[in-house]
């Protein structure tokens, strides 16, 4: 009997524990977010006027809420609601779990969040000073599987060497690019990450070759004249160079030579720009750091402005 009671109490304990755990899990589940690997539903906010007017809020998970723009970087700024000609849109994608992915130094949240959101805010500040463009000042991440992706004809994907796209993301990105979308890839290094990226992008655009973009390509002269491809180091390497540490270098892993490659459509227009063995995102993110060499930030902005002007005109 005592054994029976002990067994019953053990069973009751497990049942209550399971119930509490399940309740807690439900409470933690994002209210309106997408579950990784599934097709994201259109944001409720879009049911109103339009997604462009009020960009979707960050909705990866309930406990991952970036600070609003006013508190983060643009103190006091009241962003008017309205349609802008340009939204700097960051691609949310599924990764293989080996990338950096972080937010504000806290726990890892996927490769796509690398440098996010500081790099985005700082990039937009520079962009609007260099280019006469009606750009939205806030962040705007969108999943590759989200139908709303097609409302933003230019997207930026970072750490693409850790991409592990789901079927929905592959289809979403393929339709996006074939409809006229423009993808900028950045911050992945070495052979191993290239192979991972190439596997994914070939699934998206099978049969389309990846080509090296020569310096006489319009991409390098659309706004700024760029005469050489510079390897932009990450923050740590850049500081080491500035501080003159012995053995300081710009490369990571075996990515010694920077490349700007592309995938072209049937008319020879760029659909995808691939910045390999370089880290433009860190150059924007740490541009204010006195230890981050200005030459890299300048180059990163020049190339970015060229990509944007090209992507909005070709």
């Amino acid at each position: 009997m005592r054994t029976l009671l002990r067994a019953s109490s053990i069973l009751a304990f497990f049942a209550v524990s399971s119930l509490l755990a399940a309740t807690a899990a439900c409470r933690e589940r994002p209210a309106d977010g997408a579950v990784r690997g599934s097709v994201a539903e259109p944001s409720p906010s879009y049911r109103g006027l339009m997604a462009q007017q009020v960009p979707r809020r960050f909705r990866r998970s309930a406990d991952f809420e970036p600070a609003p723009p006013a508190a983060e970087t643009r103190e006091g700024l009241v962003e008017p609601e309205g349609t802008h000609a340009f939204y700097w849109t960051r691609a949310e994608y599924t990764d293989n779990g080996r990338g950096w992915g972080r937010y504000g130094g806290r726990e890892r949240r996927g490769s796509w969040t690398t440098d996010y959101p500081k790099a985005d805010y700082q990039f937009l500040v520079g962009l609007k000073r260099l280019l006469r463009i009606d750009a939205y000042d806030g962040i705007n991440p969108v999943s590759l599987a989200d139908p709303d992706l097609r409302r933003y004809p230019m997207i930026y994907a970072v750490e693409v060497g850790h991409m592990d796209l789901t079927r929905e993301e592959i289809h979403g990105l393929r339709d996006y690019l074939n409809a006229g979308g423009f993808l900028i890839c950045d911050d992945f290094w070495g052979t191993r990450e290239w192979d991972q990226f190439e596997r994914n992008i070939r699934a998206v655009l099978p049969g389309r070759p990846i080509v090296e973009l020569p310096l006489d390509h319009p991409l390098f002269s659309t706004y700024y004249q760029i005469d050489s491809i510079i390897q932009v180091p990450n923050e740590g390497n850049a500081r080491a160079i500035t501080l003159g540490y012995p053995g300081a270098h710009t490369y990571e892993r075996d990515g010694y030579v920077p490349h700007v490659r592309g995938i072209l459509d049937d008319h020879g227009r760029l659909m995808v720009v691939i910045n390999w063995n370089t880290d433009l995102g860190d150059a924007w993110e740490w541009a204010e750091d006195p230890l981050y060499p200005l030459v890299y930030s300048t180059y990163a902005w020049k190339l970015a402005v060229n990509m944007i002007v090209y992507g909005m005109s070709h």
Binding site: I133, P153, S313
Partner: peptide, 17 residues
């Protein structure tokens, strides 16, 4: 066109052929 706009890109693409 007075500023970079997606409108320009898509009009160009529409009549390019």
């Amino acid at each position: 066109e007075g500023e970079p706009r997606h409108e320009l890109k898509f009009i160009r693409r529409a009549v390019e052929d």
